[in-house]
């Protein structure tokens, strides 16, 4: 294992009513790792990502941030349950950035204001300092000239790049990308992947749920294959994607190469 673990999960389970989506996930994310999570829809890959910054609360198991468990164990009437306080979750999320499939930019703010919002409201930076930092982040994703546009006036690819800048402005230790290109027109996918690749090359720690197998192959340092809420196979991309051991993974990969030319 390389580097210290930033995030770690132990026996993570997630149920939505009768639906048992995650069935015991043990995962360790070391500093500098770029982890791609693959799996067919319903395999639990997005849910796993969303449990790491508590967009979903785990039904069982624990998440550790820098080896400290998130949430407090409380025993009431003999039963032990983990209690997640808003304050603790907010503190974690400040250091873990997330980029959503549907961008979720704030429509009432310009691109610049979107990027400033976290530092301004959560980190309580001054307006001037936040604006200058936000401009640097926008420049990094190639959008300094669109700073004063409202999201509705930006293309999907541009919106997603602003969303990435918004997450980066918090200077997070880990970035979570939840299918960042899945709702983009094909010709806009490249510009977003380009930005993510640049972040990967800087050595940034990231987890990426994606259907872009080629991208995962070239950018990830490790690939996980999820099936029915479990990590079925994991390893470096060359090994996992060129010589998969599990039959399920072989079928999964075959479906993507069916129409290659």
């Amino acid at each position: 294992m390389t580097g210290a673990a930033i995030l770690r999960t132990e026996g993570l389970h997630k149920r939505f009513g009768d639906l048992h989506v995650l069935r015991g996930i043990d995962l360790r994310v070391a500093e500098g790792e770029r982890i791609a999570i693959l799996g067919s829809s319903g395999s639990g890959k997005s849910t796993l990502l969303r449990c790491l910054n508590f967009m979903e609360l785990p039904s069982a198991g624990r998440v550790f941030f820098h080896d400290r468990p998130v949430g407090t164990e409380e025993t009431r009437g003999g039963a032990t349950a983990v209690r997640y306080r808003e304050r603790d979750l907010a503190a974690l999320r400040r250091r873990v950035g997330m980029v959503f499939q549907s961008f979720n930019l704030f429509p009432h703010m310009t691109a610049l204001e979107n990027v400033m919002e976290g530092p301004l409201t959560v980190l309580r930076r001054g307006r001037g300092e936040a604006a200058a930092a936000a401009r640097r982040q926008l420049a990094r994703v190639g959008l300094e000239d669109r700073a004063d546009e409202y999201p509705a006036r930006l293309s999907g690819g541009q919106q997603q790049r602003v969303a990435i800048a918004r997450a980066l402005a918090m200077e997070p230790e880990v970035m979570l990308f939840d299918e960042p290109t899945s709702s983009l027109d094909p010709e806009l996918v490249g510009e977003v992947l380009g930005v993510i690749k640049a972040l990967a090359e800087e050595g940034r720690t990231m987890l990426l749920v994606t259907h872009e197998l080629g991208f995962a192959y070239h950018v990830a340092s490790r690939v996980l294959f999820l099936h029915e809420g479990r990590i079925l196979e994991e390893g470096p991309p060359e090994r996992l994607m060129k010589a998969p051991r599990e039959e399920r993974l072989r079928t999964f990969l075959a479906r993507f190469s069916e129409f290659s030319f």
Partner: peptide, 19 residues
């Protein structure tokens, strides 16, 4: 998605509502 985006930045309920 708007609530989630705010929470993901580390906002707590008050800031999320207000901003």
């Amino acid at each position: 998605g708007q609530w989630e985006a705010g929470r993901a930045l580390g906002m707590r309920r008050g800031a999320l509502m207000r901003r």
